[in-house]
Simulated assay, not measured.
Amino acid sequence: MQTTSKNKGGRKQKSNPKKHRHVFRLTESENQRLLTLFASSGMANKANFLVSLLLDREITTVKVDVGVLQYHTLLTKLFNQFKAVGVNYNQIVKLCNQYFSQDRAKRSISRLEEYTKDLTKLCYYIIKLSKEFEEKHLNSKGKV
């Protein structure tokens, strides 16, 4: 006996059938925006448009490191304090020159210069620590 395959009829089987389905919901404004993008794309099939929109574009993921975020926040606060110190420094020098005698103004400003040198050393130390932190934590992580 010979076995012959009978044609059952119907559609031809696709070589790569689409079996997986994903559903999502949109608000009115999001739906309108999506339809506008679809219309401007010139594509005839909305499903193909959505697949190309999702899969053909490069998606970057960002991992938030809490330690880095806290470090950045503290560094920003410190920077703002440095700016405030600079403003106060200018105001003090102006007031010393305006209201003090020349000798007293020189003494006050020289003391202020010593504090400024200490602040400069601290600033260089902060910059050094920041560079070490960047090299250790930020540059060592691979790009996604």
Rank of each mutant, 00 (worst) to 15 (best):
R11N: 10
A105M: 11
K136I: 02
S101T: 06
V62A: 12
S52R: 04
K94W: 04
I126Q: 07
E113A: 15
R111S: 10
K19I: 14
I92K: 09
N16R: 07
N97R: 10
T4S: 11
V23C: 09
H137L: 00
S5R: 13
N90E: 02
V66W: 01
R33C: 09
E28A: 08
A84D: 08
N88Q: 08
A39E: 13
K6H: 11
E30K: 08
G67Q: 03
A105V: 11
L75N: 00
N139I: 11
T73E: 00
R107M: 14
K106S: 13
I126V: 15
V144L: 10
K46L: 07
K141F: 05
N80A: 11
K141T: 06
T27H: 04
V23T: 14
A44D: 09
S40W: 01
N139C: 12
F24R: 03
I126N: 01
G10V: 11
I109Y: 01
R11E: 08
I126L: 14
N80H: 13
N139M: 13
D65R: 03
V64Q: 05
V144E: 12
H22I: 09
T36R: 09
L74M: 04
E30P: 05
N97I: 00
N88G: 03
S5I: 10
G42C: 07
V87K: 14
H22S: 05
K136M: 04
Q98G: 04
T73H: 03
Q13L: 10
H20C: 04
R104C: 15
L129N: 08
K131C: 05
E114I: 13
Q98L: 09
K14F: 12
L75S: 00
